[in-house]
Simulated assay, not measured.
Amino acid sequence: RPLAGDFKIIFLDEADALTPEAQNAMRRTMENYTRTCRFILSCNYSSKIIEPIQSRCAVFRFRKIPRDAIRKRLEYILNSEGIEFTEQGISAILYVTEGDMRRSVNMVQSAAALGDVTEENVYGIAAIARPEEIQNIMAFAINNKFLDARNMLDNLMLNYGMSGEDILLQMNREVMNLNVDDNFKVRIIDLIGECNFCLVEGANERVQLEALLARIMAISGR
């Protein structure tokens, strides 16, 4: 029973990380204590919350925080802490975190531990490639420079420690910035989707990524 008031409030963060079995057990707890407890569940993917729980909740969806608002807050934190930073470093954090304020603050803390918040430190910590590096890989393949594209791919996987899925996600994100027509972009996205499916099914990521570059080169017709 609550110590004061009519009911307790129980907040569960990252509730979508619970297994279906754990969620079913929690559902029974929610049903047994509806008179004395209110549950607040936060999650990244509402589809991972089982339907019986969703039907008992009011769902509120939150948009990503605007980049300008995150930039302003990060600059306030850095100036308050007396940490040196560059505009490119802040932009790199915004690119990596994609509107997630908590990740942005954590990234600032990690980068500051290495010294200044610079673009190099941010990408090194995040273990992802710069946008232009991903664009260059695809551009090399489009321009019939397979070996150059393959060498850049090797560099990302060895120096950044990126997985095949991480590289595909960045490719999918950067394909719209390529200097090619929309129909060709659509075909590349389709190839990326097929490659991702193969990786999910357990295929060798190195073989699949090289095959993806070869297929991009083949459809370019250059």
Rank of each mutant, 00 (worst) to 15 (best):
T86I: 05
R73A: 04
F184V: 13
A4K: 07
R61D: 08
C198W: 03
C37H: 01
Q170N: 06
N151M: 14
N44W: 07
M176F: 09
R63S: 15
R73F: 13
T36L: 09
E21G: 05
L213C: 09
M171T: 05
A17N: 06
K64Q: 14
C43P: 05
D148P: 13
E132F: 08
I167V: 14
A139P: 11
R56V: 05
I125P: 11
V59A: 05
E75N: 13
F60I: 12
I125E: 15
I93C: 08
I40Y: 08
N177Y: 07
N44K: 04
N204S: 07
D182V: 12
I142A: 01
L169A: 13
F62K: 06
L153N: 00
A25F: 10
N44V: 12
Y33G: 00
E210R: 07
Y95H: 14
D13F: 04
V108I: 12
G124V: 10
T97W: 00
N159R: 05
I10M: 04
L168M: 09
D6H: 07
T118F: 06
N24Y: 12
S163E: 03
T34V: 13
M176K: 12
P66Q: 07
E31D: 07
A15M: 02
E174Q: 11
P131T: 11
I10F: 02
R67D: 13
I50Y: 03
L169Y: 06
I134A: 05
E174F: 03
C37V: 02
N172I: 01
M217I: 09
E81A: 15
L147K: 07
M157H: 11
Y95L: 06
R28Y: 15
A149T: 01
N196R: 02
G115W: 12
M107L: 14
A127D: 13
G99D: 05
R103V: 14
D116F: 09
E21F: 06
I216E: 00
M138P: 08
D190W: 11
R38N: 02
L94F: 12
G193I: 01
K185Y: 09
T36C: 03
L153V: 01
L18W: 07
A139L: 08
N79D: 15
I219C: 13
S110A: 15
L156K: 02
A214G: 04
F85Y: 11
G202Y: 03
A15N: 01
I70A: 08
V207W: 13
A214T: 06
L18F: 09
A111G: 04
V59D: 01
G221R: 14
L213Q: 03
F60R: 02
L41W: 03
T86C: 07
G124H: 12
M171E: 00
F11M: 02
V108K: 08
V105T: 06
I125K: 14
F39L: 02
G115H: 11
M176Q: 12
I216G: 00
K8V: 09
K48V: 02
R28M: 12
L74I: 07
E120A: 10
A129M: 05
I50M: 04
V117L: 10
E75T: 08
R63N: 15
A211D: 02
S42V: 15
D154N: 14
L3F: 05
E119V: 09
F60P: 05
R103K: 15
Y123V: 01
I49S: 01
A111K: 12
